[in-house]
Design a protein around this nucleic acid. Structure first.
Length: 844
DNA sequence: GTGGTCACG
DNA sequence: ACGTACGTGACCACT
């Protein structure tokens, strides 16, 4: 038989430090569990063992409620976040029919040693999975060690060990006896390190042998002296380094054969941990948890569904239905009948009909309806949007996943209609949660109506003049060619400039420029670093130019041309359930990061144009986030600054530097501007100093002075953070919520990040709420007043309308009114509006 | 798939 | 001793 023996502590440690901290929505950390299972499954698949045993140190926490006590009472090395995860791993292994072993007075590797010996003695194969090189001493003809490193798992058999170390595995003990190991408190022989120790072992084999004959050998005096002085320590160390092989554990190997998996239990646990990928890997469906474990069989009656073809008569009989539109396939559930069709006209008729509708992910349905000249009417609910409001951090909002997450039965027994049949129950549950969280208005008045607006914007799209873009691309290609040649000349050879690795070698090794910063994988070559070096060598400037040209060419010229539709327009996808803060995002292509900050980049915007006889009307909020901050905290000075209509950064500078506004220099204004940004992001002196190029001390003073002048800002931040720490959640003015698990981390860096998130999200999120409301109102007014004008883009604080010239002024007026008056705030919301043939012009 | 870089608010 | 402002998405190199 084959036994897989695992050092649970060691693998869990590797997993924990190898994967960034993850947590479920209850704040339970899961990264180590996840990593452990991945390593386990991978090796299980390779070894295909008959039996598995996972050994833990006895002092690892076994029960969930003890995890915290364990951390407080015991060893310092293990962070709380890891200790908390131990019980889950043990529970999971148990449910999978795998033996978890501990032994009073013995450590995990002693248990492994014992298991290895049991196998070896019987002639059975043992695979020891660990991250700890000490266990390599266990290797023999029957025992292979699978050493998990950060990159890969190395299979160590006697041959491989010999190749790497140059002596037999068992002598690893002697090696450690000489060189010691500080992490295991093994002293070794003072002054003998890895090199000397290794050479001695290769020559003498064991320390016994060494101590018998070293005095007459050809070793140097100093080594002899060290060995003499460390003789006792060496013997003691050898004993310490030896892994026990006779721990009192169950020596019946058959008892470690893999048992039966409790699928329902595994499913329930992994669902609680929100580890759905793992669930997939284990080939257990998320629904098994509910059917088998939580819902008693008697209470659950399967829904018998009758299938039918959709027809006009059927549609006219509908009252309230749920539906799913998947591409051009529609399925509608009314009562216990599921109507299907892929007839476009019928689908359009259904979407247009007056019955109340519920779905998951309504935007494509709106798009479909609009493409057929109609609309989606009477949409009452969207499970995806509900799921997003309840947890903005989730990665996807599928019916199956949400059913598992919210404890709703997922009707997998209904086969291909499982999503549809489960939908109503799910929505009911999600609605109840949303109500409980006070987000009903946010859902009904903002998010649900917004979907139609976004669909319409996508549907209309924005015109792009392809000839212009191509011309620009030709120009860029020439510049790239030219710049590239200059770089090659300066470097003395050709290389891939786009490879940070190769570029780093050229700049910092071949050309000897001073490296400022390092990244995980080498030298940092980002713009900030290069900017500092640009006067030291002309190549640096050329690299910066090369980067600018290639970025523009590949992302914008090539990238955008690739996305032009047959109508000569770009139809981006606005994503409504993507960001943690409530903002919208844009993909394929991203229309929210079209260049504007540099002269060359902003040329791109000249190619986004209004159609024939039309103009673009662009309106953006000025400093909306600072204004939101002023409103939220109610600071008198800050409100006064906005109410006076003066430039806010100048006004801030005047306050902080305590001079009249007319005395504010451009430098002072720019420092004040940086502090204003910092305030919104959750200020830190270090980053501010970097941003404005002062000392950290000076930056700290700016912040202090700022907060002294705007005391309510300070108060608001403190209260927000305190509250967030207590509840684990922050909210926007309109009740949008974001959980912040980082706050319960014991890692200070993460905790600090959590605090900044807590300070920033209410501000960024409220600004997002406001512009969403404005979008809905603008959309409705354009419709109601029958203007030949459409909203086409949103860029966080900016809205763009394409309007017929005949009504452009009216559209501009609507934009201004609806944006300015979106909500009654304690400070005015200022809006800049411009018109132009292109986005470049309309931006003003 | 991940990390580095850079485009935007 | 370490890392260092909030929120995104796309492209490239490299594993």
């Amino acid at each position: 038989m084959k036994l897989l023996a695992i050092d649970g502590n060691s693998i869990l440690n590797r997993a924990f430090y190898g994967i960034k901290l993850l947590s479920n929505k209850k704040g339970i950390f899961t990264n180590a569990i996840f990593g452990f299972m991945n390593i386990y499954l991978k090796n299980f698949g390779e070894v295909k063992p008959d039996a598995v045993a996972v050994a833990f140190d006895l002092r690892s926490p076994t029960f969930r409620h003890k995890a915290v006590d364990y951390y407080k009472a015991n060893r310092k090395g293990m962070p709380d976040e890891l200790a908390q995860q131990m019980p889950y791993v043990k529970e999971l292994l148990g449910l999978m029919g795998i033996t978890v072993l501990t032994c009073e007075g013995y450590e995990a590797d002693d248990i492994l040693g014992t298991l290895a010996k049991l196998c070896s003695d019987r002639g059975d194969k043992c695979f020891v999975l660990t991250g700890d090189r000490d266990s390599l001493q266990l290797i023999d003809d029957n025992v292979t060690v699978l050493l998990a490193t950060n990159k890969e798992t190395i299979h160590y058999d006697p041959q491989r060990f010999m190749d790497d170390y140059g002596f037999e595995p068992i002598k690893l003990i002697d090696l450690k006896a000489l060189m010691g190991d500080s992490s295991d408190n093994i002293p070794g022989v003072a002054g003998v390190g890895e090199k000397t120790a290794s050479a001695l072992i290769k020559e003498y084999g064991t320390i016994e042998n060494l101590y018998e004959s070293y005095e007459d050998s050809g070793l140097t005096k100093s080594v002899k002296a060290k060995l003499a002085a460390g003789a006792e320590s060496a013997k003691e160390s050898k004993w310490l380094a030896t892994i026990v092989r006779d721990a009192p554990i169950n020596n019946d190997l058959d008892s470690y054969l893999i048992g039966k998996t409790d699928s329902a239990g595994v499913s329930r646990l992994l669902t609680e941990l929100e580890m759905f990928k793992l669930l997939d890997k284990l080939k257990i469906s998320a629904s098994e948890a509910e059917t088998a474990a939580e819902i008693p069989a008697a209470e659950f009656t399967p829904i018998e569904i009758t299938a039918a073809e959709l027809s006009d008569e059927a549609i006219s009989g509908f009252n309230r239905v749920s539906f799913i539109l998947d591409g051009t396939d529609l399925a509608v559930r009314s009562g216990n009948t599921v109507f299907t069709t892929n007839n476009a006209e019928l689908i359009a008729a259904f979407l247009n009909s007056g019955c109340e509708k519920v779905t998951v992910g309504a935007k494509p349905a709106y798009r479909f309806a609009m493409e057929h000249g109609g609309s989606l009417n009477c949409l009452r609910d969207d499970a995806e949007i509900c799921g997003y409001l309840l947890n903005t951090s989730s990665t996807d909002y599928t019916v199956e996943k949400m059913c598992a997450e919210y404890g709703v039965h997922y009707c997998s027994e209904n086969g291909e209609f499982a999503d549809l049949v489960s939908l109503e129950g799910l929505v009911e549950k999600l609605r109840a949660e949303i109500d409980r969280e006070g987000m009903t208005e946010l859902l009904e008045n903002i998010e649900l109506p917004l979907t139609e607006v976004l669909a319409s914007m996508e549907h209309t799209g924005i015109r792009i003049t392809q000839e212009g873009v191509r011309e620009f691309g030709t120009y860029l290609s020439e510049m790239i060619e030219e710049t590239q040649q200059m770089i090659y000349d300066e470097a003395g050879h050709e290389f891939n400039i786009a490879s940070p690795k190769q570029l780093g070698t050229v700049l910092f090794e071949e050309m000897g420029l001073p490296a400022k910063k390092k990244t995980k994988s080498g030298y940092s070559t980002n713009a900030e670093v290069l900017e500092e070096l640009r006067f030291q060598a002309p190549i640096v400037d050329n690299v910066l130019k090369y980067r600018q040209y290639t970025k523009l060419n590949s992302t914008y010229v090539v990238g955008l041309l690739d996305k032009v539709a047959e109508d000569g327009r770009i139809h981006t996808c606005f994503r409504q359930t993507e960001t943690r803060t409530g903002r919208i995002s844009s993909t394929e292509p991203n229309m929210q990061n079209i260049p504007v900050r540099t002269e060359l980049g902003s040329q791109m915007r000249k190619f986004f144009t209004a159609g024939e006889g039309k103009v673009l009307v662009d309106a953006d909020y000025s400093q909306i986030e600072l204004r939101v901050m002023a409103h939220l905290c109610g600071d008198k000075n800050m409100m006064e600054a906005f109410n006076s209509g003066e430039d806010i950064h100048t006004s801030t500078a005047a306050q902080v530097f305590d001079v009249p506004s007319i005395m504010v220099t451009p430098e002072m204004r720019s420092a004040a501007k940086a502090v204003n940004f910092g305030i919104i992001y959750g200020i830190g002196a270090f980053s501010l100093s970097k941003d404005i190029g002062t000392s950290v001390a000076q930056a700290k003073k700016y912040i202090e002075d700022y907060l002294a002048k705007y005391p309510k800002v300070n108060e608001f931040m403190e209260n927000t953070v305190d509250n967030a720490i207590k509840t684990g959640v922050v909210s926007t003015m309109f009740g949008r919520k974001r959980r912040i698990p980082e706050l319960s981390s014991s890692n200070k860096v993460l905790q600090a990040a959590g605090k900044r998130i807590a300070m920033n999200t209410p501000v960024q999120g409220t600004a997002a709420d406001l512009i969403k409301i404005a979008m809905i109102n603008v959309y409705r007014r354009l419709k109601a007043e029958k203007l030949d004008a459409e909203l086409i883009l949103q860029v966080h604080d900016e809205l763009i309308i394409e309007a017929d010239v005949s009504c452009a002024d009216k559209a501009a007026e609507i934009l201004r009114e609806e944006m300015q008056n979106v909500y009654d705030m304690r400070v005015p919301l200022a809006v800049d509006v411009h018109q132009g043939e292109s986005w470049y012009e309309a931006k003003g």
